[in-house]
Design a protein around this nucleic acid. Structure first.
Length: 258
DNA sequence: ATGGTAGAGCATCTA
């Protein structure tokens, strides 16, 4: 089972690239973030032509998440479960694909430690944990994939000193991510490559950071123990960040033996 | 020199 996640930074701008990538990589499941589309504008037919069912949750201008699957797509759920304070944005969608409960998440950026958006980020992470508690079983096969906007460790950023006092590396958000993992999830990429720096999924468009290899590892596939035990591959597809009109994120691929 | 680029949409906002 090949599961991928990709923040495409506008699906409108990226559709030809995503289609070509799907045709090349043929993941069983692809989670998308930052489609920046309303549901009515989601190009479901383009993905159906490639053999993928899809569910999309978006409100048009910003955010927007989707799941594509060629191994079935059942019980879609947009946003947080009933009983949890609803999200003001469209940042979470879940579905069952080939026996795996899949979540595509776009965690709020936070902007700055003293910005209200940072409090929203922490609240959002707590609500995601509550959502998992309410709708999924950590003893079953679960993945939570997406752009977490958190570098889990200092080796997940190109220069820790450059992030002093900034979001993405602060203790409260790392603690919130830890609480998510404590529910029963494994960062399979870091489990495969412990202590190996320089493996990023995002590079700021500005200042030529991609070509200077100045990035951050903020996109990942979190897997429940039952799946993580069968983890056979973890890759960041840096090639998808090259050429004309790339996203500022590269796709992250995780594979699990059946 | 608080810079730089990309996307949405048409003035800025978001990242």
């Amino acid at each position: 089972m090949r599961i991928a996640t990709w923040n495409v930074n506008s699906l409108n701008a990226r559709l030809p690239r995503v289609e070509a990538w799907l045709d090349d990589v043929r993941p069983d499941v692809l989670c998308l973030q930052e489609t920046k589309l309303a549901d009515a504008s989601f190009p479901a037919m383009a993905f159906a032509a490639l053999g993928y069912e899809a569910v999309h949750h978006g409100d048009g201008r910003w955010n927007g998440v989707a799941i594509l699957s060629r191994v079935g797509l059942d019980d879609p759920l947009a946003g947080f479960a009933p009983g949890i304070e609803p999200d003001v944005d469209t940042r979470l969608v879940a579905a069952s694909c080939g026996g795996v409960r899949v979540h595509s998440v776009y965690v709020p950026n936070g902007r700055a430690l003293d910005d209200p958006h940072y409090a929203y980020k922490l609240s959002w992470l707590a609500r995601l944990r509550a959502h998992l508690e309410a709708t999924a079983d950590p003893a079953s096969e679960v993945v939570v994939c997406g752009d977490f906007n958190i570098a889990p460790d200092d080796i997940d950023v190109w220069d820790r000193a450059a992030f002093e006092g900034a979001t993405h590396v602060s203790e409260p958000e790392r603690t919130a991510l830890g609480a998510l993992l404590d529910w029963g999830l494994v960062d399979t990429f870091r489990a495969r490559y412990p202590e190996l720096p320089g493996l990023y999924s995002y590079w700021d468009y500005t200042a030529g950071r991609f070509h200077k290899r100045e990035g951050m590892r903020i996109d990942y596939v979190l897997a429940s123990a039952r799946l993580a035990a069968r983890s056979v591959l973890d890759v960041v597809d840096r090639n998808a960040r090259k050429g004309t009109k790339p996203s500022d994120h590269a796709p992250v691929i995780a594979e699990f033996a059946r």
